[in-house]
Design a protein around this nucleic acid. Structure first.
Lengths: 137, 137
DNA sequence: CCAACTATATCGCATTACGATAATTCTCAA
DNA sequence: TTGAGAATTATCGTAATGCGATATAGTTGG
């Protein structure tokens, strides 16, 4: 049988607020870095999701799943990346409904720079995030 | 002198993509929970930031700082919360330029429910987040 | 072979943070 | 004391973006 969880104290709200503030700090860092190379946060995340997947395996649907977007929103997002010359759409060989997404050299160059700075930032934030997480049970 | 950091491998991109996906998962959870009680993510975060601060200390500027928004954007955000009956604006006694933000009972009730589920979710995600963080140096 | 399903795309809309600008209020040096 | 400049908040028009509703093409099982 489930028990009501412990009531929330001021310190719980503070822990939640601090955790959210840290996450917001990271996303703000990421937004700034992405904007410096002309990308929106979603565009950056989409490119990263595609890069993190085995070559030739990333589809519109996969981007939607990883970014937790509706498939048609992912389609629009990919539209913009396509117009910017950052990805190529290829009809999947086996299933012609699917669209395979391939990164261009330009996209890979942008991602390399962004990923280096993000890795550094995550390493920098790691001790703080560990502390914040440890404030929760 | 600074050394160029190690080059990025496929596993580094995968680690970054997985980390981002986990963060996105948390924000999506939060968005859903906030929407269930009629709040946007920013509104939720603003209420939480105010709640996490000592009573009578939260101002528009403080919200802007914690949410990393321009002050005038925080002003607009607070406008909407005000219109929804979730906060009260009070001119600060010492400095009449400042606006003190006070949560209404309704806001506190919403926050209590949201914070309980969020604390639970963070506890649930903690092992995953620790693993993901440990993939970085 | 056709009905149901899957994957992607299109269009209009509502939301929201921003830039530019403004109005108060405060601070501090002359 | 008295401005000049800074700090704090507010207003307005704009651009960007994800969504709902809808549409099209392709696939699959019976």
């Amino acid at each position: 049988m489930s028990r009501r969880s412990a009531p929330l104290h001021d310190s719980d709200y503070a822990a939640l607020a601090d955790f959210r503030a840290a996450l917001r700090g990271f996303t703000a860092f990421s937004e700034t870095k992405a904007a410096e190379v002309g990308l929106t946060p979603r565009q950056h995340q989409a490119l990263l999701a595609i890069r993190g997947k085995a070559p030739g395996q990333a589809t519109i649907g996969y981007v939607a799943e990883r970014l937790i977007l509706k498939p048609h929103s992912a389609s629009e997002l990919v539209d913009r990346l396509d117009a910017m010359g950052l990805i190529i759409r290829q009809t999947a060989a086996g299933d012609r409904r699917k669209t395979i997404l391939v990164l261009t050299n330009q996209a890979n160059a942008l991602l390399a720079a962004l990923s280096a700075s993000h890795r550094e930032e995550i390493r920098r934030l790691k001790p703080l995030l560990l502390d914040l997480l440890n404030r929760f049970g």
